[in-house]
Design a protein around this nucleic acid. Sequence first.
DNA 1: CTAGTGACTTAGTACTTTATAC
DNA 2: GTATAAAGTACTAAGTCACTAG
Length: 741
Amino acid sequence: MSGDHFQNENQVDCGSRVNDSHKHRDKHKEHKLKDHKKDKERDKSKHSNNDYKDSSDKKHREKEKIRHKDGSADKHKEKRKEEKIKDGKIKKEKENGFGSMHVKSEPEDLYHAPKHEKSLKRERDDDDVEFKSKKIKTEDDKKAKKRKHEDVKVKPKGKVKKEVADGKKKAKKEPEEKWKWWEEERATDGSKWKFLEHKGPVFAPPYEPLPSRVKFYYDGKQMKLSPEAEEVATFFAKMLDHEYTTKDIFRKNFFKDWRKEMNSEEKSKITDLNKCDFNEMAEFFKAQSEARKSKTKEEKLKLKEENERLLQEYGFCIMDNHRERIANFRIEPPGLFRGRGDHPKMGMLKRRIRPKDIIINCSKDSKHPEPPPGTKWKEVRHDNKVTWLVSWTENIQGSIKYIMLNPSSRIKGEKDWQKYETARRLKKCVDRIRNQYRDDWKSKEMRIRQRAVALYFIDKLALRAGNEKEEGETADTVGCCSLRVEHIKLSPEKDGQEFVVEFDFLGKDSIRYYNQVPVEKRVFKNLQLFMENKEPDDDLFDRLNTTVLNKHLQELMEGLTAKVFRTYNASITLQQQLKQLTNSEDNIPAKILSYNRANRAVAILCNHQRAAPKTFEKSMQNLQTKIDAKKDQLSDAKRELKSAKADAKVRRDEKTKKSVETKKKAVERIEEQLMKLEVQATDREENKQIALGTSKLNYLDPRISVAWCKKWGVPVEKIYNKTQREKFAWALDMAEEDYEF
DNA sequence: CTAGTGACTTAGTACTTTATAC
DNA sequence: GTATAAAGTACTAAGTCACTAG
């Protein structure tokens, strides 16, 4: 199934983050059709209306938002409490990880390796909804029993090995075997943990005022700033070299927020950002970072040790008897917001987070983290239906930020595993779904046709779902459901192909998606229909949004959402490409090249791009020089071999014979080195603007890669670095060479 | 149905460390 | 050893998607 269906026509054609070339958006902003969606009867003549609506509404909305922010905490609290009471035992099947994983009709032998029996069993157990309520208890008991017997398990802590055995506490910390959580039972009651203890977050270091010799000038005259204003000024000064600081919006937002931090005197004096001279500050910070770089070994070591201490103290938590690594235990320091693309809020002040902004989440029976002396947490709660340890509300978008666990943790790993299992279930019914949406292209109902065409794009092109976004709050980017007429161009015939759709839009992170795709005639006709009588900035799928789409998908397969298609298509593409590209006679570097190429095919499909490294051209040249040198060396070696051979023919003694052998070896070695370099060059060239990391980390079922490594004798370290191996420990442990996605 | 919220995954870039070349 | 490049890590923004209240 599938494979060829997805030949990806997608050329990563120069896709660049588009800042200026995609301005086209701005001019339409004013009448974006958010509201259009509501009216099924779209009224074309309303533009002036919308204009009016938007400008007045925006302000209103902003005010609204501010109010919400203030009230939200309490509202939230109340809601939580209620929930807890109700939630006690009731919501069982809904949230439980693999519970929803398997479709009933699934064939028994999903896994081929016998080793998996255990986990397979568990999945099936969970799967059986009927039995669940009866089972929960016994399962939980079993688990509880099991866990009671376990001591706190701790991961090896790297270099810190000195304090092994002194005192009980330390003894407990002794590294044990890696915990194989994937061989254990999973909670079935929707709780994410039973016990959680941690030390709370690490706050950003307090502001250190500048030394008095570092001056700020306004309008050519020196001016002493209050600490509050100075701090914000330094944020700007630190970015002076950055392109951001030349952008109008950035400057405007910065200046507005900066003025809020000024005292009245400063406020009255400093009225024009262009008259501000931050250069001395900027110089100071440059010098400071230079100094940091040129520190002596001892100083650097000291810093490193301090860091390690912090990590050991705050970087781990205890969750259900295991010591687990926290991902981001440091609170984001204050600074200027750097949005990506044309972000309307770039340059705004991201304010400092204080203890009173922080909500702590941990178990009731744990030792709660202490706020810094003289401060209080906003709240300490005990919600085991969520995975986060700490949260706070950020002031730019008003969204919540979290401190959560590392990808190597059980809680993240289980979820990740589950994600790939859902994708594999899709594999089993994707044909059916494809047939269905093809049928739906003919539907009488517009909304069904739109849904079907959108789904086709999501499937074929691995587009993201495309939620609606609040206008003016974020950069103007789109996904499938939010595509606008202006983002596609139809050509009945182009470059010798029929029915070509040309996509050109900014996706997540304002990365440009550009692709020319020949589509089926029906799709083409439908698109023409959808575009009829619409303005460029009207929604292409005006009867569709992600909620509707996902509701539909849910009906087609339990747990199916738009993003599952991305996961599925990415993983299946990798598997196929590996099959296709791997050459059994190749040596290891060549096999790795094949792997990278397969990986790259996926990255292209998913449009994972990166800025070409600044030093790209130069490093490419260097490599070429090396290759040339190696070639010379090779021909020399060959020449020598030849003469040695000739020599041997004449002389026929042991010594010359031996010399031939050595020369032969030398040639072989050099050939291999050359080949390695050439492979490297190809790989790098092809990788110029493509980022492999994202797909490797988020879309490719790691068991495919592990199986491939085992099959071809490639050390898994060549594919996954240490961090990645930790994240995918479950896959390394369970995938055998015959694993099939 | 819609708007808003919350939790969690996915994303590219900036910075830091390590490996390799000289 | 030092300089440079590559690899790895930290950071945090920007998505997805479920759920709830009105």
